[in-house]
Nucleic acid binder design. Structure first.
Lengths: 168, 168
DNA sequence: CAGAACGTTCAATAAAAACTGAACGACCTG
DNA sequence: CAGGTCGTTCAGTTTTTATTGAACGTTCTG
């Protein structure tokens, strides 16, 4: 932190997350970790962002589930550390695609139950379901065009990510 | 309405809208109008969905802003009628693209204000902004591949009712 | 012009969500 | 084993959002 421009960026990330349907704190955590570029602990988050430990824990794991954060346990410490993945929003898109697919399924199932005398209505609903299916497909294609996730985040010394997953 | 399967579909649309960050009633209205296939008035919505006139009005205009509903004033009546556009989610994608672009701008501006000694952090943030820009661009391309909006909804003039298939 | 129906707005309420403090179990250290 | 630190959970509070009822201005009808 320590700089007003950086604080502003983090606040921006918080607002953005909120307007995208997430939580402010999740956005702030992501912004903070992108700025830092190295793994940070929950305690560091609570201090940097003035949030409770409960919020830090909950939102960090939420971001982990979305694929935007990675938990790296550092050898010799039982503290978890968290870092932003290098393409933090790639998996957000994947989540969107999954949700689209599920929406399409839900709508398609509902359409299948329509009574015979509502065939036209059903066809409109099926059309809607198709939109979701096709959008999901397209987003997945888009994802596959994104640059590969590079495991080159913390640019200075090697915190060996891939191997040292060592949670209790 | 009048059918349990259709009611279930409308409820599904409400839940879906909610999980996508919208309001339940907006989703229900959209579902209702898709089922009906013809323009319906606010009063009809309030009866069919058991909602208040205030909610119907507010949410209908909200959907209109998103491009999912169209207001059609019928000659000889001063009642507004509303219908779902034939591709109700096309403009939802456009809204997403716009939001992505704005997010990219906000993040990019924040990055530009970073102090010189945080050049590496800034480059990470710029990378993030680029993701938004590229995604916006891609979505817009996807939109342009969608079948054209056909303005053939609320009449029996045309026979190919929303039957446009995706080309992939 | 009176009366009714309409769409919108706004204050108030109801419902939902975020966020926190405190407590807990697990684990390490000395 | 005692004391400290860690991450998580949970109940409670605060904050936000959705939804409503009532009031208002407008427009049509008779």
């Amino acid at each position: 932190m320590s700089d007003v421009a950086i604080e502003k960026f983090i606040e921006t990330m918080g607002s953005l997350a909120q307007s995208e349907g997430g939580t402010r704190i999740a956005g702030q955590i992501l912004g903070y970790l992108v700025v830092e570029g190295e793994p940070r602990t929950l305690t560091q988050m609570t201090e940097a962002l003035s949030i409770s430990k409960a919020s830090a824990s909950t939102n960090a794991r939420l971001l982990e589930n979305r694929g935007q954060l990675r938990r790296v346990s550092q050898l010799g410490s039982r503290q978890d550390a968290w870092e932003a993945v290098s393409n933090p929003n790639r998996d957000v898109l994947a989540t969107v695609a999954t949700r689209f697919r599920k929406s399409g399924e839900a709508i398609g199932e509902a359409a299948a139950a329509f009574p015979p005398d509502r065939a036209e209505a059903r066809s409109r609903v099926v059309h809607l379901a198709d939109f979701y299916f096709n959008s999901a497909e397209f987003i997945e294609e888009w994802i596959s065009n994104l640059p590969d996730r590079q495991e080159e985040n913390a640019s200075d010394l090697s915190t060996d990510h891939g191997a040292a997953k060592f949670t209790g």
